[in-house]
Design a protein around this nucleic acid. Structure first.
Lengths: 218, 218
DNA sequence: GTCTATATAGCGATAGAC
DNA sequence: GTCTATCGCTATATAGAC
């Protein structure tokens, strides 16, 4: 029933090289070589390098979104720590992926953190399309938990959550350097322990109007 | 006293193309053409494409760090809103740059947001070196304001601040799309109004140990 | 489905005239 | 300091044998 061993090897090799050197910098030659496949295999299986890029993202994004929604369905939205629960539901699947992907924390998740800005427009749209449903579901959940917040404020805040998450997962090496090894980005529990209290407090903060502080913006 | 008009044109053109298409994807040919300079000019003025890349970052990073430290020195660390003040000192110079850079919010600041992961190791080190002093000064300020937080917790939180900032500045287009135009990433005051209450609440949050919530991490 | 060989194009960098 | 011309290399993609 297996379609092709080579196909999966190519996806694995591409994922690893993309996450390490970026998409542009990873040549089809390097990918096929790393997968011990023939140079022509990429074009045979994916049509083009762009097709391979799309396939690399598609393979991981759908299961990740499904896991997120499953976690979200398991949250008790009436609990006092519902905000924390929903944050964990959003973060855990990404952090788990950062751990499990072939080369660990520097794998697919790290690639994801960059994906919104790096690749070409076409690929970016494919990624956003795959994510939009689960993002919407989480926004609905947060708006139930924080009904006093205007919808726009909620969108900003969820955007900050995504930024902190993406940066952590994409630039964990910065953190490991700053902490001189006293952290492990692959340790889902530890990362959640750090992120969730910070982000939950941010989500719960009263919407701000400190005109005095910010008035001078020139 | 001006050294070379071409030199500045090349920096401007490179900055714009790098931020729009990425460093790797911007060829020396495209850069010189966009600057209406000769193909050989990059090698003459900067030695190599890598030299140009370093020069693009160096030109903006030093003034930005200096402005940050100036703003920090202007903060009243004994005020009740000292955390907010320090956050503004950290964020405002970047947001201002996002506004002023040639092509607006999609300019140098957007490039910065990606710079920690995208380019080659050498360039990354140059950027970090330019930033490390001001980062350290801000960590010291925060540790004075939040003496109850362990140093490691502080580093994690400051990392989240950087992530939210980088994502906002690098992926503002996501936000503008989500908000259907009801925001302007170039409006420093508006962005600070959204970011500072969220991040200040996160910085002030008690360090978390919700073992119950996060225990299951497989 | 996998291979070799190659077409076609673009790249960074440099030599040398002006 | 700016130009043209070009070297040497690598890229993606494909044609056609097996």
């Amino acid at each position: 029933m297996e379609q092709s061993d080579t196909r999966e090897s190519l996806l694995d090799a591409a994922e690893e090289l993309f996450s390490e050197h970026g998409i542009q910098a990873s040549s089809v030659r390097a990918i096929t070589q790393h997968a011990t496949a023939n140079l022509a295999a990429v074009n045979y299986h994916f049509g083009s390098k762009d097709g391979l890029v799309r396939a690399v993202f598609a393979r991981r994004l759908k299961p990740m979104s499904e896991e997120r929604l499953r976690e979200l369905d398991g949250c008790d939205l009436s609990a006092p720590d519902a905000v924390e629960q929903v944050l964990v539901a959003f973060l855990k699947p990404v952090l788990r992926m950062a751990k499990e992907t072939p080369e660990g924390a520097r794998g697919f998740a790290r690639l994801m953190g960059r994906a919104f800005s790096e690749p070409n427009e076409e690929v970016r749209q494919a990624i956003l399309g795959e994510l939009s449903e689960s993002i919407h579901r989480f926004l609905v959940a947060f708006s139930q938990l924080l009904p006093h917040l205007p919808q726009d404020e909620l969108i900003w805040r969820f955007h900050f959550v995504g930024g902190a998450m993406g940066h952590t997962v994409a630039c964990g090496h910065l953190l490991e350097r700053s902490l001189e090894g006293r952290c492990h980005i692959g340790d889902t529990g530890e990362v959640l322990q750090r992120m969730v209290p910070f982000l939950a407090a941010g989500m719960r903060a009263p919407a701000g109007t400190q005109e005095a502080l910010i008035k001078e913006t020139t």
